[in-house]
Design a protein around this nucleic acid. Structure first.
Length: 785
RNA sequence: GGGCGUGUAGCUCAGUUGGUUAGAGCGCACGGUUCACAUCCGUGAGAUCUGUGGUUCGAAUCCGCACACGCCCACCA
């Protein structure tokens, strides 16, 4: 063994070893309880960030723990390379836009680019030591996954839960697609609040304040608050919209904010979601003046063809000319933007496909209640979201690189034609139905929309399990054991998966849900590229090694965001070095020692003490791990290893192994060292898989036989090594040692200094009488009272 | 506006079902080792447990209120 632990060399070596040995390959035939993880497939959008390192470390600690408990762990890996995010990546890598190259070429380019970047992408996860089965990974755009997704779509169609409807939809003019409620994000924007005169039919004038004057052409009503005394007499009157001249009714609705502006508000189809509510509630006419491209249309007359922003400026100028713009003031307000591109969303009537599920809110809430939530309070977040749902799930997207909606429309009678399941996956653009339409026509119009990525990701348990080839085993694996994920996508991934599982199987998708947090910068602020405070995981892994970084990650409390801390990583590195070093030192004394259970007969009290402590640590550790409290488990093993084992046990046993009084006591010490070091390594293995493997391979493999520490079983508390009474007495002896050390420290003496004449007072002298010779020898003290 | 969470040593965090002197790591001070440790070990200082009112023989822990911070949702004309 080399003199110093070279993490770079060793980590790479063991990573390759695991891969070569297919160590983490799932074996469906293996006996034992299955622990299956619905791994979150990272989005193939370039680089792994520090948050990935953290969250996959968490999952991996859990996976490794269960594997070492003897469970058959199914820990699959997939990449999400379906949809808008991938399109954007492909565009930026290749320096083209999809509009330039056309749909067919673009899809090909996507496939090509994906296969190019995938190996590098996956290697990042391997470097983090994630023990997924990388021999068989899935991709959400693969034909197999397309088939699963389309098949489930057809199933919902059969249930009557898929419908297409022209309906006001959240629409992103930049991405040219419909988006879902969950894809909205708030953005603080500066805007101008414009006070505009409206004339009434009876000649009076009112003032209306708006930030969106370009929508005047879409104005369909004016609202006041029903209990606003100032405007009571306006209700029922008719106003004339400036410039465009349409006559609109003035109505009352209690959603109007009396304090805002003049307390009179115009309703346009559609300026925001309130307009939408009013449109439905008051049965208002539809006046759309904006196109999907974000320009004004015919209805806007002279402003047709201008962008929203340009038109806003022009209309304001015209109002000014006419004397109808009274005042303007700059305000900060938040607007709804598309989370993928930051563009302000519009509400436009478009034809979209929906999954009907608003009627199932109660059922979803019930399912949420049946899940085991870690931490518990995250359930409330999901429940609030479910209660607040207002729209059915819009699953169609007007994108190119996605899973096609498997539908044709008959050109003659308009009937919807579905493919049969055995022909899936299909792209209606490139294939035709196998039969004529019932009306006799054989001409079809393909559906051009693709499915929202969440419509596919929500089937992740089905996708993950599709990789399991053994049918019998697969049948027992749903619901899965665990869904690990971050709290930011509870409303997306977690909810949608729960909903799909409910719709298709009337079952929970998993038993447990584990929620992790985000990584903040060292000051506790959100990391963002724009702020320049993002941490590059490559550099950190390079500098400190994976074990050290995982050590930092494993301090994160479940559900909580936590800070990036280079100090904690350094602590991790120290721990890895200490594990390597202490093991090396301890095992140095075991050359030529062959483990024999009979050696346990001659255990000294310090051996019995450390065994008792180990038993305790094992028990506490397991309890914490079982409830996903790995930071606490790590603390337990840290304390046992560093304090009890290194600083106390090794220091005490040193003399015994250097100069043993007899063979029996030496062998008892060697027996203890063997067992305890191996125990420590195993307990650390889920956290620090590399350094523990290094020591295991170097010393234990030849005797333990199992080819990797990660395939061994965790130690269990053993009754024959439990000596509570002796341990308690021995603990008192250690207290006495502490008192002697204190005396020496206060007198600025070396710990080795001989205290011949000085007598030291210790507590509980009676209890530790039998240890006085040992203490006296260890601490070089003659007189102890 | 609604919901959730957090507030404990200079910093980051533990504190199980309320129970004798509130813990750890880092940092700090002092000392010792350097024949296991690109170090390590020891000793120590440092906390009116955010505030406030209550329940109790007893509260960091339970309850009410207030304040601060963070997040989610809604609003955002």
């Amino acid at each position: 063994m080399q003199k110093q632990y070279d993490f770079k060399k060793q980590e790479l070596k063991w990573q390759k070893f695991w891969e070569k040995e297919n160590l983490y390959k799932f074996n469906p035939k293996k006996s034992g309880k299955i622990f299956s993880i619905d791994t979150d497939p990272p989005t193939l959008s370039g680089k792994m960030h520090i948050g990935h390192v953290s969250s996959y470390s968490h999952e991996d600690i859990i996976a490794r723990y269960h594997r070492m408990k003897g469970e058959n762990v199914y820990f699959p890996f997939g990449v999400d390379n379906n949809g808008l995010a991938t399109e954007r990546m492909v565009e930026s890598i290749n320096g083209v836009t999809l509009f330039e190259v056309g749909r067919k070429n673009f899809v090909q380019l996507c496939q090509k680019t994906i296969s190019k970047v995938l190996p590098d992408f996956v290697s990042g996860w391997k470097r983090v030591g994630v023990s997924c089965d990388f021999s068989n990974i899935y991709s959400t755009i693969s034909p197999a996954v397309q088939k699963i997704s389309q098949q489930h779509f057809l199933e919902l169609f059969g249930q009557g839960r898929i419908y297409q409807k022209e309906s006001p939809t959240l629409f992103c003019p930049a991405c040219q697609t419909a988006i879902a409620q969950a894809e909205l994000e708030d953005k603080e924007e500066q805007s101008v609040f414009n006070d505009i005169y409206f004339e009434l039919e009876d000649g009076r004038t009112i003032i209306i304040s708006t930030t969106r004057p370009e929508l005047l052409a879409s104005c369909v009503a004016v609202f006041v608050h029903p209990r606003d005394k100032r405007h009571k007499d306006l209700i029922g009157k008719t106003a004339i919209v400036p410039i465009f001249g349409q006559k609109v009714k003035i109505m009352a609705d209690d959603k109007v904010d009396k304090e805002k502006g003049s307390g009179i508000v115009m309703c346009c189809t559609f300026g925001d979601t309130t307009d939408l509510d009013w449109y439905f509630k008051h049965n208002l006419p539809l006046r759309i003046s904006i196109t999907k491209q974000g320009e004004l249309n015919d209805l806007a007359g002279e402003f047709k063809g201008f962008s929203i922003k340009a038109a806003r400026k022009m209309i304001l100028e015209k109002l000014k000319e006419k004397g109808q713009l009274i005042s303007q003031k700059t305000i900060e307000h938040s607007v709804n933007v598309h989370e993928r591109c930051g563009t302000e969303i519009e509400i436009l009537p478009t034809k979209q496909w929906f999954i009907k599920y608003l009627d199932l809110k109660e059922q979803f809430l019930k399912q949420s209640g049946k899940l085991n939530w870690y931490p518990k309070y995250m359930k409330i977040r999901l429940d609030n979201w479910i209660k607040g749902l207002r729209w059915d799930w819009c699953v169609s997207r007007q994108r190119y690189f996605g899973i096609p909606i498997p539908i044709w429309h008959c050109k003659k009678c308009g009937k919807i034609i579905l493919p049969s399941v055995k022909d899936l996956p299909i792209d209606p653009l490139h294939s035709n139905p196998t039969k004529k339409c019932s009306c006799g026509s054989s001409e079809f119009i393909p559906e051009t929309d693709v499915l929202d990525t969440w419509a596919t990701s929500s089937l992740s348990p089905q996708i993950a399990l599709s990789l399991v080839k053994n049918k019998e085993t697969k049948g027992t694996m749903f619901p899965m054991s665990l869904r690990p994920q971050a709290h930011d996508i509870i409303n997306f991934w977690l909810f949608y998966t729960l909903a799909r599982s409910s719709l298709h199987y009337k079952k929970l998708p998993w038993r447990d849900v584990f929620i992790s947090g985000h990584v903040l910068d060292s000051k506790g602020e959100k990391m963002a590229k724009s702020k320049g405070n993002a941490v590059d995981p490559e550099a950190i892994l390079e500098k400190y090694g994976t074990d050290a970084v995982r050590y930092w990650a494993s301090q994160a409390r479940m559900g909580d965001d936590f800070r990036f801390s280079e100090e904690e990583i350094q602590q991790g590195k120290r721990t890895a070095t200490k594990i390597w070093n202490a093991s090396r030192f301890a095992l140095m004394h075991l050359t030529n020692y062959a483990l024999k259970d009979s050696d346990a007969k001659n255990l000294e009290d310090e051996d019995k003490w450390i065994f008792t402590k180990l038993n305790r640590a094992i028990k506490d550790y397991a309890a914490k791990m079982d409830s996903y409290e790995y930071p606490r488990a790590k603390e337990i093993i840290d304390g046992f290893f560093w304090n009890d084992f290194c600083n106390n046990y090794l220091e005490i046993v040193k003399a015994r192994v250097y100069e043993p009084e007899n063979k029996q006591t030496l062998k008892a010490a060697q027996f203890t060292i063997y067992k305890v070091v191996l125990g420590i390594l195993k307990l650390y293995a889920p956290f620090m898989p590399f350094v523990t493997e290094e020591v295991y391979q170097d010393y234990f493999r030849k005797t333990e036989k199992t080819k990797s520490i990660h395939l061994t079983l965790l130690p269990e508390p053993e009754k024959k090594f439990d000596f509570p009474a002796i341990a308690s007495d021995f603990e008192t002896a250690i207290d006495a040692i502490v008192q002697i050390r204190k005396y020496k420290s206060e007198h600025q003496l070396s710990m080795k200094a001989e205290l011949g004449e000085v007598s030291i007072k210790v507590k509980n002298k009676g209890k530790i009488k039998k240890y006085l010779p040992l203490i006296s020898k260890l601490m070089s003290v003659k007189k102890i009272e």
